[in-house]
């Protein structure tokens, strides 16, 4: 337990210290929120929903911010590899699984903080939190997204030797995952083939879960979202742990 806490602590300390990273990674989600939210607010009317379009996409943008931060945190171990710090950790008398879990929890924590910042900022842009229960549901789903995608970042970073592969992950994993998730459009009105694709995207369940918490309505029922996402998180943590264990230094 102590080891997991130690690695977690290092991650959180580093995160809190890099102010530019905190501010920098707010840019993209805020940009989406403002451009899409205000740009399309008046022209889009979502069938069967009493809320504005901007309120509809806030959960999606929160999820986006959690997604980006967590993948980035996971993939950070490439830097540790390049700057040699990882060796210091790997030569200690601790298991790699503990190191990986500490890293995952650390990444999920920073991702959650980042998501909460967006959530707070969205309150000034017409967003809202209905009640404590709704807020806690949203936080739960943010944590699950954070855990899943930090583990995914670690899984990708483990066999990589340098940052060259990072763009690949960004373009072929992160953007498709975000784009297909129903973060910025309702999935129920999609043509069937596209709708099934969104069902395959784990982030869909995260977005819908947060939406259920913040808006009280969602297109996929929250328990389904919960079990789908917790299943994905468990799978990713096992896969990330497996690849991290096999990693060569």
């Amino acid at each position: 337990m102590g080891v997991i806490y130690t690695i977690w602590l290092r991650n959180v300390k580093r995160y809190l210290r890099s102010k530019s990273r905190i501010v920098g990674s707010l840019g993209m989600p805020l940009f989406f929120l403002l451009i899409l939210g205000f740009g399309l607010n008046s022209v889009i009317n979502i069938p069967g929903m009493e809320h504005d379009y901007i309120r509809f996409i806030i959960p999606g943008i929160v999820a986006m911010s959690v997604l980006f931060t967590s993948v980035f945190s996971g993939i950070q171990i490439i830097w540790d590899k390049q700057f040699g710090f990882l060796k210091e950790t790997l030569v200690a008398p601790v298991s790699r699984v503990e190191i990986m879990l500490g890293q995952t929890l650390g990444g999920a924590t920073t991702a959650l903080i980042q998501g909460l910042i967006i959530l707070v900022l969205s309150l000034f842009l017409g967003g809202g939190v209905p009640n404590v229960a709704g807020f806690l549901i949203a936080v739960l789903f943010m944590v699950l997204i954070g855990l899943s995608f930090t583990a995914l970042g670690i899984a990708f970073a483990s066999p990589m030797e340098d940052m060259h592969g990072f763009q690949l992950v960004m373009n072929f994993v992160i953007f498709p995952v975000f784009g297909l998730s129903g973060a910025v459009f309702p999935i129920s009105t999609l043509p069937p083939f596209l709708r099934y694709l969104t069902y395959l995207d784990p982030l869909t369940y995260g977005v819908e879960g947060i939406r259920a918490g913040l808006l009280g309505t969602s297109q996929i029922s929250p328990p389904v979202c919960f079990f789908a996402l917790i299943g994905f998180a468990t799978f990713m943590i096992f896969l990330g742990g497996y690849l991290f264990k096999r990693m060569k230094v």
Partner: peptide, 21 residues
Amino acid sequence: DPSLDEELTAYENMDFHGRLY
């Protein structure tokens, strides 16, 4: 090759090591 965490202080690097052990 160097193996310190540059974003942490000297004390924190030591403390991290101590906790891992």
